[in-house]
């Protein structure tokens, strides 16, 4: 004999159960999973940073903010430059005042809250600059956590944000191990570097690459074997950031040091 309580329970289970397989059938459609791997895209944008060449002038940050309409005086930026100073007694200092929008014009390390650390010239063991930007990961965790499909990866590997579709939940900002995402102060949605998608799809280079006087930043297509950037990545010693996260970042660094996080 079926009771009303039991019947209600089973009805709910049945309806819930019917709703799940509709999505589940699609999830495990082998044809679609296979298609995912055999992509026919002719481009896969990658970035190459030479930390020996970078002088910390910050022209890249300035150009990026203007090109991509990121409010100039807001303390957010799609790309930034970090300074690392390692002293002879083994201490590491790192700073990026205003994301290096105005460059590094003093030897004092900004500790935040208006405090500075003076380091004597003779105490410096090594000092260098590391430009940072979105790694356009092959396994982008920021895309995976988006609950609404507002951030996504294009066929050529660039991760974009749909400004009209983003609900501003901030999961992607938390999910990015490289901290490249932030809220856009005007649009109030997630914002990130997209390798200047409007430029690279027109055959131009990213604004930061054009602005760099020292060739410290270069952009290339890893699927083109004749691309000079591809040749360097394939034949020279390049490093990536936070390899242990398994995100497969596509920004490669020459002269990376263990102090760089």
């Amino acid at each position: 004999m079926i009771t009303r309580r039991n019947f209600c329970k089973k009805t709910m289970l049945l309806v819930g159960g019917l709703a799940i397989p509709l999505a589940a059938f699609e999830l495990f459609d082998p044809k679609k999973l296979l298609a995912d791997k055999s992509d026919n895209a002719r481009e896969r944008w990658v970035f190459l940073v030479d930390t020996y060449k970078c002088t910390g002038c910050g022209f890249c940050v300035k150009a990026c903010k203007i090109e991509n309409e990121v409010p100039y005086d807001a303390n957010v930026t799609r790309t930034w430059v970090e300074r690392y100073v390692i002293t002879k007694d083994g201490r590491t200092f790192a700073d990026t005042p205003k994301g290096a929008r105005d460059g590094f014009t003093t030897g004092k390390i900004a500790l935040g809250e208006g405090m500075f650390q003076e380091i004597g010239n003779e105490d410096i063991d090594k000092a260098f600059f590391v430009p940072k930007l979105c790694n356009q990961c092959d396994n982008p965790p920021c895309v995976q956590v988006c609950p609404v499909g507002a951030t996504y990866q294009t066929a050529d590997g660039v991760v974009l944000v749909d400004r009209t579709w983003c609900i501003g939940c901030g999961y992607c900002i938390m999910g990015c191990p490289y901290g490249v995402r932030f809220f856009h102060p005007v649009y109030h949605v997630a914002e990130k570097c997209n390798f200047c998608y409007h430029r690279i799809t027109k055959g131009m280079k990213s604004a930061c690459v054009d602005a760099c006087p020292f060739d410290a930043r270069r952009i290339g297509n890893i699927k083109d074997p004749d691309d000079p950037v591809t040749k360097i990545i394939m034949t020279e010693r390049v490093g990536i950031l936070k390899e242990e996260y398994g995100t497969k970042p596509q920004v490669f660094y020459i002269g990376l040091s263990k102090e760089v996080k």
């Binding site: 699609e26 999830l27 679609k32 999973l33 298609a35 995912d36 992509d39 895209a41 396994n139 982008p140 895309v143 995976q144 988006c146 499909g149 507002a150 951030t151 996504y152 990866q153 294009t154 066929a155 974009l160 749909d162 400004r163 009209t164 579709w165």
Partner: peptide
């Protein structure tokens, strides 16, 4: 779209 179930969900027109 192109990048599949894990990374591809989006409005095509946003590209």
């Amino acid at each position: 779209h192109e990048r599949g179930y894990m990374y591809g969900w989006h409005r095509k027109s946003d590209e």
